[in-house]
Write a protein that binds this DNA or RNA. Structure first.
Lengths: 267, 267
DNA sequence: CGGATAGTTGACTACCCTCAAGGTATGTGG
DNA sequence: CCACATACCTTGAGGGTAGTCAACTATCCG
């Protein structure tokens, strides 16, 4: 939250500057009319304190939530209390896209920092998708991007070492935050505790601490007062095996001009 | 593949009996007309041998593939050859839904057993989704189901022990195969090698072998000639912490009548 | 200044990996 | 039918990554 949190609801006329609309406008190329139609569905913003649950796994929910401000996450619990965070959410992210189709939350959605959250009625969004095909496509596209991110995290959890995995997570956050102006190549504000990072990476918080020490002792990163300083982004990405393609930060039209590049890379 | 493989293209009039259409008809409640419209897009079926690559990660692809017969998977490779299988595909599954939105494969799609595969043009499917809203919703719903499955696998990879994870994988396969009539409560034909299972679970094949021994020595399962015998499905599910909800096998209208059940379970 | 939360460090343990050898099943050609 | 090849699975030994427990430190805040 650069510049300090502003957690009061945004003024009435500023809906079109909501980070979710900004993102869809940029990535899906939605026009003024489409954005206005979506903006009309945005219910009043609500403020949540840090670590508060917005939706419980299994709850019936008739709306989807979009994150306006702050950091949040989605997670699942096992019976004995172990938990796995499946997504880290930053401003502009849809928090529970699955509710759009299922009407029931498959995962718990909770804040990490204090957050501002707006909601949209599921039925209304679905109807809007029918009357405005480009909005429907945009929502489907968001779902596909989430899919790609989950698949990549599968790879991290299954086949990357703790060191590679942590580096990858930091690279991913840097790339996503840079896309919304909350990071540059030198780093970003990182409000996650090591225990939360452990629940993302499937490790113990103690091992996360050790792995951070590892990356720090090599001069790749530095941590000070909740800010991550990236000393060498290129090398961090190499260690992680990070290729930002899967995040699809270029939007719906992105990447299509780069034909043949993948074949060339294999040859 | 119960009853032995039939890997020649299906006769022309039998398109509506394609497992993909059967599934969509049942789960999304599509009518005859909608199914016929989709069937019209099905390009001729192709046969692939075991372990052949259908789509390479990074390839530009203008169509999506649906699995008619056999087992297949999706996976990603790391630079040094490690790989992570992100999805096991059985008849009726869409193999590369991401290509529908991105026009480029994010993962490699490959067969496990000999397979029959049909294809649909991505643009044609997208257009059909616009002219037939219920088809568009059904495709989006498939994407959401994939999402839920990936999230659950994240939990398995991050927070379940090898034993729990293997039990969970077997339970998931049993449930999905039962839905297409290829498994019952006593087991199913399991064509995966332990090395492939290792690439699903993020383990070494040797540890998969040991974990199988573990489950067998407790009398939960038995393995003989590529068939998994489940001796005690209830107990296997308990060990796994398996709840089939996330697979959404009941279809688009399923589960909505069971309101309050989640709250009750928490209380 | 006390209290709470978060992070670090050390010692010990356990899960899972690697290497290596042996065993089993299936298929092929003589 | 047998010898052989191949692929897959099993078992053992030893090692490394990551988990647990515990104590200590740092930081933030009222």
């Amino acid at each position: 939250m650069p510049g300090g949190a502003r957690l009061t609801p945004a003024p009435e006329g500023a809906w079109t500057r909501h980070p979710f609309l900004l993102r869809l406008g940029k990535l899906a190329g939605l026009g003024e009319g489409e954005l206005a139609a979506l903006a009309a569905l945005l219910e009043k913003e609500r403020a949540f304190g840090a670590r508060s649950v917005i939706v419980h796994e299994g709850d019936k929910v008739g709306r989807i939530h979009v994150l306006s401000e702050g950091w949040a996450c989605r997670y699942k619990h096992l019976a004995d209390g172990r938990r796995q965070i499946t997504a880290v959410l930053v401003p502009g992210d849809v928090m529970d896209l699955d509710s759009l189709r299922f009407g029931r939350a498959g995962e718990t959605v909770a804040t990490i920092t204090p957050c501002a959250v707006a909601a949209l009625g599921s039925a209304a969004v679905r109807e809007l998708g029918l009357s405005h095909p480009r909005i429907g496509e945009a929502m489907a596209w968001l779902g596909a991007v989430e899919n790609a991110a989950l698949a990549e995290r599968n790879v991290c959890l299954g086949r990357r070492s703790a060191r590679e995995h942590l580096a990858h997570l930091l690279c991913e956050l840097q790339a996503r935050l840079a896309a919304i102006g909350e990071a540059d190549e030198s780093g970003f504000a990182l409000p996650l505790t090591q225990e939360q990072i452990a629940d993302i990476m499937g490790l113990s918080s103690i091992h996360v601490s050790r792995t951070f020490m590892d990356l720090r002792s090599e001069g790749l990163i530095e941590l000070q007062r909740r800010r991550l300083e990236i000393r060498n982004l290129r090398e961090l990405r190499r260690v992680a095996g990070f290729r930002p393609d899967y995040l699809h930060l270029e939007g719906m039209r992105g990447g299509e001009d780069a034909s043949g590049e993948a074949r060339a890379a294999r040859a």
